[in-house]
């Protein structure tokens, strides 16, 4: 029964129709393309392939520790939120993370929350209660004495939602990275880098699976978060990513928000 519940939650959270607004973001892809002149379509496709690999690695090294920590310590969501905000000194990346985090909280409040039942595991109950409390606190949040404010960043909230819906940890991290790859591929299709079938082929490929598994292994560690990276050691591993993301603001024409 529990596995069925987890499967159901997995399918819900992996649905591209989940109203997170992810379609609005390209995670620096649009800016990356604008910074590089590609002579031919195949050249462009190759560059995208490269970008996808690095983007998955970079989102893993910066965000997966927060997903895992939100999953295991939902009671410290506020602190995780502060620390992730402090660790994201890029206006564009910050905007994307907050917008998706707020959307996820709204989905939690209006929809997913009702799926928690008294028969759910204590961990699920705890994560659910923490999410509901976080959402309530966010609504009345004001800058504190130090001028800092709650923001609702996506990664730690995603971890907590996965825990509340009884998804195993590995599935939660895998889903987080796969969703990121799907968002990038969908952006790439709309930016005419590749066609819909090519995009599916990349999604289905063993290479993408390999990148995701390798990223999980190097950031989340083994099962139970053992050997994983602590949130204070989350780091940017592809530095130009920050430049492309930041410079998205400078594009003459834009179809995405990031």
């Amino acid at each position: 029964m529990a596995t069925n519940g987890a499967l159901h939650a997995l399918l819900l959270l992996s649905d591209s129709a989940l109203p997170l607004g992810s379609f609005a973001f390209s995670s620096g892809l649009e800016s990356f393309l604008a910074h590089h002149k590609h002579n031919s379509a195949s050249h462009r496709l190759q560059a995208f392939d490269h970008f996808l690999e690095h983007s998955v690695a970079n989102i893993a090294s910066t965000a997966i520790p927060y997903v895992v920590s939100g999953y295991h310590n939902p009671d410290s969501l506020e602190e995780l939120d502060n620390d992730f905000d402090a660790s994201t000194p890029c206006t564009v990346a910050r905007r994307a993370s907050i917008s998706q985090g707020k959307a996820l909280l709204a989905i939690w409040d209006r929809a997913l929350r009702s799926s928690l039942s008294p028969s759910s595991s204590p961990e699920s109950q705890r994560a659910g209660a923490a999410l509901t409390a976080f959402s309530a606190a966010l609504k009345t949040s004001k800058p504190d004495a130090l001028g800092l404010q709650m923001n609702a960043h996506f990664p730690s909230l995603f971890g907590a939602v996965c825990c509340a819906l009884s998804l195993p940890e590995h599935e939660a991290t895998y889903l987080f990275l796969l969703n990121h790859a799907k968002t990038l591929l969908s952006a790439a299709v709309r930016a005419s880098v590749l066609g819909p079938y090519q995009s599916q082929a990349v999604l289905a490929s063993a290479r993408l699976q390999g990148w995701i598994e390798a990223s999980i292994a190097s950031t989340a560690g083994g099962i139970g978060g053992k050997g994983g990276i602590a949130v204070e050691d989350a780091a940017v591993t592809v530095p130009p990513m920050d430049l492309w993301m930041g410079r998205h603001e400078l594009l003459y024409s834009r179809i995405f928000n990031s």
Binding site: N82, D83, A86, S87, L146, E232, D233, A234, A235, P239
Partner: peptide
């Protein structure tokens, strides 16, 4: 309180 963390790892 953590105000800013800028971390790079290559």
């Amino acid at each position: 309180r953590l105000l800013l963390r800028d971390s790079l790892l290559l």
